[in-house]
Design a protein around this nucleic acid. Structure first.
Length: 557
RNA sequence: GCGCCUGUAGCUCAGCGGAUAGAGCGUCGGCCUCCGGAGCCGAAGGCCAGGAGUUCGAAUCUCCUCAGGCGCGCCA
């Protein structure tokens, strides 16, 4: 398969052919890397899985499989161990094949086609334009962006969307907060809304309005100018958000305004559809959704209030109907803050009600980020205007470190973001550790050219098998062989941390290899070429992996 | 009260059905006549919160208990 390592695929094919030769069903057997030395280079548990269907002892089955693997030229030795593990030892040629396959596939390596060009949407960040992005949004941005990159790399047709909640109560409050600051700055008495946004950025917006419009709003009734303040503040803040996203190297294909749903009657038609299907009913003047029946919710939920204004839930139903039905996405992934988790079941209920499979709707919950400075947690609140913005963190720690830190942990567990550590340009900082490996290889390749070498003339097939008599060389090839598995895991589980973990491991094993294997100083020309090829393959995979994380792979540091 | 997430080395966390549970940081001890020392090697450090099940086999699956976080609005 495209993107897989062909050396690994061939080995597994041999195993499956051996299994089929026993008359067993296809169990899709695979060799795995045993955790412990002494258990061979690869191990298979196929015999144990076949024991029941074949009504035979695992060790006897393993014996037979070993017999049919005898002719494989990359297998040098087999062993039956424990309850029925089949352990095999591999020749240097196998590892050479692994590495040259990486070089031949180049940047396509690891890009297995899991999506089959199916349409998937990743909706993330979607912060209301009521204030600048803070680090919690940053984590969601890093995760959403990386997941989108991973899905695209693995054959999905991906759209990245930002849902702009640009109407409603919050924007109203934003407008009134800005208006109050406008009056305040012009020396008039103002009544700042009780739940207003107290951040200093509101003053900035008010200043802009003064510069642009002067004092002309002083003498008109507040209710007449409110709309202007609302729109101006929201669009200014949205521009700031877009600028922050750009700075963070996060791109969107589409910004979807909530207002579109109302203006085009999509909320109404979604409600009509629910009513027609009997999922919604009227009571006490409001429209209710039968979530109790559909998903066993504690109670039914309100869709349209007694005052005729639809709830946020109603627009969300219309929005997801638009995603699944109008725009025809096969899978919809939403990245939400963890405090919304109680809401997942309700949206799934709506998806069920519209006749789609709730399993195709996946929510990635982003847990809280604690920002640590000097080892202490910095507290934040958007309303109170006490927070550290994403932009501040990027200025201090840099885009690469910030992204890498956000992606190191699974998103559904809380994260302590240690600002002091992220700023350190040293070995304690994992992102530098990885980037250093890439820069170091680049340095070696530059030096090779300096000494008169020609990289284009290097034959990717020229990797002498004897190189892999060295344990570090063998380990390194092994890690290269695992890249497609890491990508598969990251794609299937929507888990970028599988890749941060992988690339940290790859960098570490490369550093070990570097310390025991001279490259340019090696006198044997073929071995030198072989080691150069290994280094090139490592460089390629590090760069590929970092690209999926949205982190740069520097040539020098 | 109901529901979701999390309890793994001193700290931060991987591992989520396989054979002796891993990494980084921190601690201690080594390694530059040498291609990038932003590096490497080694040591110490664990009843995988507790209990009961399922399985040939459990940190991993199920149930219960305990602890921490979060959510249960005609808010968004």
């Amino acid at each position: 398969m495209y993107g897989e390592n062909t050396a690994v695929v061939r080995l597994n094919e041999a195993l499956n052919n051996a299994v089929k030769a026993l008359g067993a069903e296809d169990i899709n057997a695979e060799f795995e890397r045993p955790k412990h030395e002494g258990h061979g280079d690869r191990a298979a548990n196929a015999a144990m899985r076949l024991a029941k269907p074949l009504k035979s002892k695992p060790r006897d089955i393993a014996e037979k499989i070993a017999e049919s693997l005898k002719n494989e030229d990359v297998i040098t030795q087999t062993e039956i161990a424990g309850p029925g593990f089949l352990n095999v030892w591999l020749s240097g040629k196998f590892y050479a094949d692994v590495v040259s396959d990486v070089l031949k596939q180049g940047t396509a390596y690891g890009g297995i086609n899991l999506g089959q060009n199916r349409k998937v949407q990743v909706e993330f960040v979607s912060a209301n334009p009521t204030g600048p992005l803070h680090i919690g949004h940053g984590r969601g941005a890093a995760v959403g962006d990386s997941v989108a990159r991973i899905l695209a790399f693995t054959g999905w047709d991906v759209q990245r969307e930002y849902y702009m909640n640009d109407s409603g109560l919050q924007i109203d409050t934003l407008g009134r907060s800005t208006q109050a600051r406008y009056f305040e700055l012009l020396g008039r008495e103002s009544n700042f809304p009780e739940n207003g946004y107290k951040g200093a950025y509101i003053y900035d917006v008010a200043c802009e309005i003064i510069a642009k419009e002067g004092e002309r709003f002083l003498d008109v009734p507040e209710s007449d100018s409110l709309d202007y303040f609302r729109k101006y503040a929201a669009s200014t803040i949205m521009q700031g958000i877009r600028a922050d996203l750009e700075k963070f190297r996060v791109k969107f294909d589409n910004f979807f305004p909530e207002g579109y749903l109302h203006e085009n009657g999509l909320v109404k038609s979604a409600m009509d559809d629910l009513k027609a299907k009997g999922y919604a009913y009227e009571q006490d003047g409001a429209l209710w959704f039968r979530t109790e029946d559909i998903i066993g919710d504690d109670k039914d939920r309100v869709l349209v209030r007694a005052n005729g204004i639809p709830t946020y839930y109603a627009s969300d139903i219309a929005y997801h109907r638009n995603k699944f039905i109008t725009r025809n996405f096969e899978r919809v992934i939403d990245v939400w803050g963890a405090d919304h988790h109680g809401y997942i079941a309700r949206v799934k209920a709506a998806i069920k009600a519209m006749g789609k499979n709730p399993d195709d709707f996946i929510v990635l919950l982003i847990q809280l980020v604690n920002l640590l400075r000097d080892g202490k947690i910095v507290t934040m609140s958007t309303r109170q205007g006490e927070f550290i913005t994403l932009s501040d963190v990027l200025d201090e720690a840099g885009v690469d470190a910030t992204r890498f830190f956000f992606l190191m942990r699974r998103s559904d567990s809380q994260l302590d973001f240690d600002l002091d550590l992220a700023k350190k340009q040293g070995s304690e900082n994992p992102v530098y550790y990885v980037q250093y490996a890439h820069a170091r290889i680049s340095g070696i390749l530059r030096e090779y050219v300096n000494r008169g070498g020609n990289l284009d003339a290097l034959d990717p097939e020229n990797i002498p098998a004897e190189i892999f008599g060295n344990k570090d060389a063998k380990d390194l090839a092994d890690v290269l062989a695992q890249y497609p598995d890491a990508v598969r895991e990251a794609s299937n589980d929507l888990a970028p941390q599988a890749l941060t973990g992988y690339v940290l491991n790859l960098a570490g094993v490369f550093h070990s290899f570097y310390n025991t294997n001279r490259i340019l100083d090696e006198s044997d020309e073929n071995i030198r070429a072989g080691r150069l090829n290994i280094a090139r393959a490592v460089k390629l995979v590090i760069a590929s992996c970092l690209e999926l994380l949205g982190v740069t792979a520097p040539e020098r540091m």
